[in-house]
């Protein structure tokens, strides 16, 4: 992303997952090493943990949301990325992430952009709220 191509207040939107599959939760468990049965084991969730079923790792939601951040900046240009998890994400959810350009400035002589990030589910409920900073091309 080039500094000359963006402006404060501009927004970018991406559907980061449509109809989230349980298999995606299994894939994330396997890749990340977080094998908490809350994310893959329906029987455990319902009968031992008191949840209606498996739900997504917070880090999966952060990772899926992060694809918007890396689409914008390129993975090698991300300087900061942080989120708060505000609601759980369930199989079947469709998540839309929105990035809003909040600031464009120079850091150590290079242009950077700070973006606010919000991911909502199909009911408009916020699941992740955060921000990211990335280097821009001159």
């Amino acid at each position: 992303m080039k500094a000359s191509e963006i402006s404060v207040g501009q927004t970018f939107e991406k559907v980061v997952v449509e109809d989230l599959k349980r298999t995606q939760l299994v894939m994330y468990s396997g890749a990340s090493g977080d094998y908490n049965p809350l994310h893959t084991d329906d029987l455990y969730c319902k009968e031992a943990a008191g949840y209606p079923g498996v739900f997504a790792h917070g880090m999966l939601t952060m990772g899926m949301t992060g694809t918007l951040v890396t689409d914008l900046f390129g993975a090698e240009n991300v300087r900061k990325y942080g989120v708060r998890f505000t609601n759980q994400v369930w199989p079947g959810d469709t998540l839309t992430a929105t990035a809003t350009v909040q600031d464009i400035r120079d850091e150590d002589g290079r242009p950077v952009a700070e973006i606010g990030i919000e991911t909502v589910n199909q009911d408009g409920k916020t699941v992740v709220l955060g921000s990211a900073t990335g280097l821009l091309e001159d």
């Binding site: 943990a49 917070g58 990325y81 942080g82 989120v83």
Partner: peptide, 19 residues
């Protein structure tokens, strides 16, 4: 085992010096 066995993740922040 208590009903809420594991903790949940509330926040996560990364700061990168390089990729």
């Amino acid at each position: 085992k208590p009903a809420t066995s594991g903790g949940l993740h509330a926040e996560q922040h990364f700061e990168y010096t390089r990729p």
